[in-house]
Design a binder for these strands. Structure first.
Length: 415
RNA sequence: GCGACCAUAGCUCAGCUGGUUAGAGCGCCGGUUUGUGGUACCGGAGGUCACGGGUUCGAACCCCGUUGGUCGCCCCA
């Protein structure tokens, strides 16, 4: 490679071949399942005013200052490449009057951008599929969303991941729990890891999923959300879990599963590979395949009316890793021109085959003598050859005996 | 932001304790062979050994720096 060739941006990827097929398979499967659940397709801008994301994140966190791709446009406005779908969809819900469609079930997919150090399963430009239900405060919405996620994973053949489920309660429950956690950890502050001492100020709920062995002894007897749930919050969670049981979705309770941002309420969930499974190995340090929750406080923080909502997103690259590389689809017909005088005939035939709906390609370059062998290596139902003149044949056909091959032979011979 | 490991042909890699002109397989190009045939053989193109400095009689190999990659920590909307 020449020194003058510009390099790709760190954390971006060029996906090709079997991996690109896996990526497409994930998206196609998602589109199919989303229709089954009657989620409506939306297309969203890849950038928004910075405040759309900054306000949804609460302005203060590192995430805003360090992890967003923000820039000024020519008018001096601060814009940001979307780091998530939810805030943009919430903004659209408000600015387009989509309240009239509430409860609104929408789904989308596409690229997202976060300024992070790349590692296995984490990129600066990455891709997600996303599903949201806006304007629905009933636990049934959570259940439907989780059933859809579960069916999607099954449809992709991913069976070694499990739904980890928790509740953060309503606003009051959540605050009471948070205060109790701070009190609990503050008492042993000096014995916590440096990171967790920091978290105590910024994001105490996160101490619960610390990996540091110094923190582990204090996690087991930490206050539990269940002791702080209001009756309403308990009833909500019970409705979610019984709905999941009725829908046949397996789940485990994950009392340490939390969300850092204040607008999250009630249900929080992640589909996580089972310990020691193939999927766990494939994902490296990343553990979550699909995650989401209820964010009843978000739309208000964007200046809208109180609006309950729940949603999830999943990384397409991560799902593609679990699905594994997929074969590129076999051609219906490969046409090889061994005799250059027959090129026009070959082009004409190629056009007819494609018009008739057969995926076909033409080999007519390079050494004529080697074209046949090259064509032979391309997986196809039929190989059509325009041989050299001396053989006396005008056309040769080599089929694989499939119904497709039979149909093609009829079409090619019967001209 | 922090840390570990890595960088040789288009791809995957070999290259010994530093020692002539840096190799293989695959792929690519050409030729011979075969002629319902994914064969075998011959030849060719393609490398500033990531980049810059240092040590040495001599560096792909040792040292320092830079860039890039991989994986992990932090963070994870």
């Amino acid at each position: 490679m020449s020194k003058k060739t510009p390099q790709a941006i760190r954390g971006t990827q060029d996906i090709f071949g079997p991996e690109a097929e896996a990526f497409a398979h994930v998206v196609e499967t998602f589109e199919r399942i989303r229709r089954l659940y009657r989620f409506r397709r939306v297309e969203m801008p890849v950038f928004e005013r910075t405040e759309v994301f900054a306000r949804s994140l609460g302005e203060t966190t590192d995430v805003v200052s360090k992890e967003m791709y923000s820039f000024e446009d020519r008018g001096g406005e601060s814009l940001t490449l979307r780091p998530e779908f939810t805030a943009g969809i919430a903004r659209a819900y408000l600015t387009n009057g989509w309240q009239q469609h509430a409860p609104l079930k929408v789904a989308t997919h596409g690229p997202l951008f976060r300024y992070e150090r790349p590692q296995k399963g984490r990129y600066r430009q990455f891709h997600q599929i996303d599903a949201e239900v806006i304007g629905a405060g009933e636990p049934q919405a959570d259940v439907e969303l989780l059933a859809m996620a579960d069916q999607l994973l099954r449809a992709l053949g991913i069976t070694d991941v499990t739904l980890h489920l928790n509740t953060l309660g309503d606003g009051a429950s959540r605050e009471a729990w948070r205060a109790a956690l701070v009190e609990h950890f503050r008492a042993v502050r000096g014995e916590l890891s440096e990171e967790s001492q920091e978290r105590l100020e910024k994001n105490p709920l996160r101490i619960l999923d610390s990996k540091d062995p110094r923190d582990k002894p204090f996690l087991a007897d930490a206050p539990k959300i269940d002791d702080f749930l209001s009756d309403e919050a308990q009833a909500f969670f019970a409705a979610v879990t019984s709905g999941l049981d009725a829908a046949g979705v397996k789940w485990v309770r994950a009392p340490a599963l939390v969300r850092g941002l204040d607008y999250y309420r009630h249900t929080a969930f992640e589909f996580i590979p089972d310990a020691g499974s193939a999927s766990a190995a494939a994902l490296g340090a990343q553990s979550t395949v699909l995650g989401g929750g209820r964010y009843d406080g978000l739309i208000e923080s964007l200046g809208g009316p109180p609006t309950p909502a729940v949603g999830w997103a999943a990384g397409i690259e991560r799902l593609a890793m679990l699905v594994g590389a997929r074969e590129e689809p076999r051609a219906d017909a490969v046409i090889v021109v061994e005799n250059d005088a027959r090129l026009a005939d070959a082009i004409a035939l190629l056009g007819r085959l494609r018009q008739a709906g057969f995926a076909s390609e033409l080999l007519a370059s390079g050494s004529p003598k080697k074209r046949f062998d090259k064509a032979r290596k391309i997986p196809a139902h039929v190989l059509v050859s325009f041989p050299v003149a001396e053989t006396g044949e005008t056309i040769r056909l080599l089929g694989d005996g499939s119904p497709t091959a039979a149909a093609l032979e009829t079409l090619v011979r019967g001209r």
